[in-house]
Simulated scan of single mutants.
Amino acid sequence: MAVYPVASVGELPEGTYRIIQVEDRSIGLYNVKGEYYAIHNYCPHQGAELCKGPVCGTTLESQVYEYIYGREQEIVRCPWHGWEFDLKTGKSLFSEKVRVRSYPVVVENGTIGVVIGR
């Protein structure tokens, strides 16, 4: 496994993201409430650039006729068909079988690095 330095912490303020290229992979790098996460920029549904979709929250489990909104800044929604994925894990919100690849992120000496396995 190799760590690829991709940005400094000052370049990615809380609530922002950027799309980076690492080893011919397009990856979305996100700052979610001060924590950094990286996911593959490819929706498994039909190949859209997933990381160009909005970062948002979602409705949480609730009673009938009750709508509770939560997980603000933790969900990315595909710009083509609205499939939603957890930025922290890459898991979809609608099926345990569908996910997008996530990558470990490390911060050392003010530099954000993405870990890519060979």
Rank of each mutant, 00 (worst) to 15 (best):
K97F: 09
K33N: 14
C43W: 02
I68V: 15
E11A: 11
Y17F: 14
E72A: 11
S26A: 09
Y69V: 10
V115T: 10
G113L: 04
V105A: 07
W80L: 14
P79Q: 03
E35D: 15
L93G: 07
V105R: 06
E74T: 08
L87E: 00
E66M: 07
K91L: 08
E96T: 13
Q21D: 15
E74M: 10
V55R: 11
S92K: 07
G113H: 08
D86A: 12
H40S: 14
S95P: 01
S102G: 12
E49I: 00
R118A: 13
A48C: 11
E66N: 10
Q63G: 12
S102D: 12
E35N: 15
G34T: 10
I116W: 04
I19R: 07
Q21F: 06
E96R: 12
R77M: 15
Q21L: 10
Y42D: 06
V55W: 01
A48R: 07
I39V: 15
S62F: 11
K97T: 13
H40Y: 09
L87T: 05
H81E: 06
I19H: 02
I39A: 04
T59P: 02
K88T: 07
Q73F: 11
V55N: 01
G110R: 08
I20P: 01
Y36I: 03
P44F: 07
W80E: 08
Q63T: 11
F85S: 00
G34D: 12
Q73T: 15
N41C: 00
Q46W: 10
E61Q: 12
V100N: 03
V32S: 10
N41G: 02
V106N: 05
V114A: 01
G28K: 00
E23C: 09
S102A: 11
G28D: 02
V22D: 00
E96D: 14
Y42I: 09
P13K: 09
I39H: 00
V106E: 14
A38M: 05
S102V: 11
E14M: 12
K33H: 15
N41F: 01
G15N: 07
K88S: 13
P44L: 07
G90C: 03
P104K: 09
I27W: 02
E23K: 14
R99S: 15
Y69F: 14
A38D: 03
R25Q: 15
T16G: 07
N31F: 03
I112E: 02
I27L: 08
H81W: 04
T111H: 07
R18S: 07
Y69C: 08
W80I: 06
V114Q: 01
R77P: 02
I20N: 00
I39C: 03
S95K: 06
K91N: 14
L93Q: 08
E11C: 03
G110I: 08
D86V: 10
F94Q: 14
G90Q: 05
D24W: 10
E84C: 13
E11V: 04
V22W: 01
Y36A: 05
I116A: 01
